[in-house]
Write a protein that binds this DNA or RNA. Sequence first.
DNA 1: TTTAGGG
DNA 2: CCCTAAA
Length: 596
Amino acid sequence: MVSKKRRHNGGFDGFLSPVVPKAPRSAHKKSSTGSEVCPFELLAAVAGQLLQESGSSVSSTGLERKKQITISEKCVKKEPIEVKINPLRLDYLDHGCCGESEFVPEHSNIELKLEPPLKDLPQSDNDSALEHASIVTATDFLKEVGANVKLEASSDKNGIDGDLCDANMDTNGTKVQTDTVEKLSVDLTGVKSRVNHHQLNKSCKNAHLPFYSDPAPGAYFPRHRKNVKIGHAVKSFDQNRKNIYMRERYQAEIAAKRRKKFHHSSKPDYVQETSSESISNTPKEKAVTSSVINHKSLFQAKDGHVKFSIKSFKVPELYIEMPETSTVGSLKRKVVEAVTAILGGDLHVGVLLQGNKIKDDNTTLQQTGIALNSDTLGFILESNLPQASHKELTLLPTCENHEPLPSLPASPIMDAGFLKPPIDSPVATCFNNQIENNQENKQEPLEVVDTKAIVPVTPLNPEALAIVPLNHKVSKKSELSQRRTRRPFSVSEVEALVEAVETLGTGRWRDVKIRAFDDANHRTYVDLKDKWKTLVHTASISPQQRRGEPVPQDLLDRVLAAHSFWYQNQSKPHGKHQTEPVQTQRPVKVCSGFEA
DNA sequence: TTTAGGG
DNA sequence: CCCTAAA
């Protein structure tokens, strides 16, 4: 590093300033390295201890567990263990008991995610430990909600369906409902386990999410305020599947950051995004690219009104043809393009009931039976087909449900990934927020859907179409989550940059931007700063090592001169008139491959 | 939001 | 280009 910096000044015969170390303005250099602990180790440790505790007695306190988990989260920045729960209470529905295939309105969401690096991780030493780890997380999570959770771990994979619902009541008499069937997948290097959260029906007083079969008695985690049994089964799944990641906050941050990137852009690209996706029972799509996102729709019926909460849409079938020699990256782009093309235009939504598309837009919800077949209701995005059309939206108006949905997660963010629900049927409907975020996947992570963004639109007037604009954004959204396309600086841009830096210096990128790239929305001051950095580097290496469009040597010379000059006169923003002596002193070299 | 640097 | 700690 040091040598690198010196190099910048070295080799330049113009102004050789004594290498005055620039006062680091930021000290983030190594802040977060080294001390981190392998997430896996943490998991294993935590799990191990828990196992012990649970095995020996019920003495371990929730606090202890929590603490440990907290620690791991802290240490493992990149592979956080996120747990989130969104308890909701509904008073309208009274389901009998929950069969797995039964669709149950979503009252709460339990989301859990373990995201260990699939690779690079030391082989886990103890499968069960890992498995427990995941359970623990869930437990902890539930605990926070004030629920008493009992978990039984099982290593067998069947038994997933059992009585999922016993009701549950916390000691405080608070009902905990988890009608959301959650599927959790955890891939722990070699250990593949899957955790399933089953629905807890509110109607039931005691919700039990039992862990089916369990060879390990020690896998019991009592000691919580409420009783919730969560079924757990170990299963293997393909590598692409990643874990569900749930921390809203985390994602929100990321999303926010993403947006930041475009703050210079004249258009509000980051506006809203909706996600594309669909709901359950739509006929299976086999398109290679079909990015089926998890869909899940909340369906509520109450006093003559119907509420819909669409969390995701299924993207229409897409066909993409590419030569075998195409790169995965190109495939991804292709998919994005295809999806964008569909979403880019006017938005059309198709309503599916029991797999059949409802074409008569004038039919009432009541007539279609939607109110009674909520579990087979689905929505699908459609391309600009003549037939489809906004009419479909009238559907919403019909239901007149203005009421904001209860407690929908503020930002149910989910990434669409390539996730093939093991069961591709109605049951899938119950899965909630499954997230697949695997870069290796060819599936393009479609943006998440914010239920709130959609649902509110319900109104009975053209307003509904107001969503359309959002959708436009949607298409951009997918772009947002991507790396900006590379746009090499042209020689003229370089020249403008050099010119600006010569006069403004190297510590006022904002000004440089305004001065020379004010109209170039795609060039942020950070970009300019970066470009300058590369220019300095380029200028200090031999021409043979340079790549890309060659930059005139004279420009590079000016770069070095300016760099040198400002380097020694660093932090002298004021001298408004500091002519760049650089120019003057600049050794006019004719290009040549000197350098060194 | 900007700056400054590492990735 | 991206990501982010600092300022």
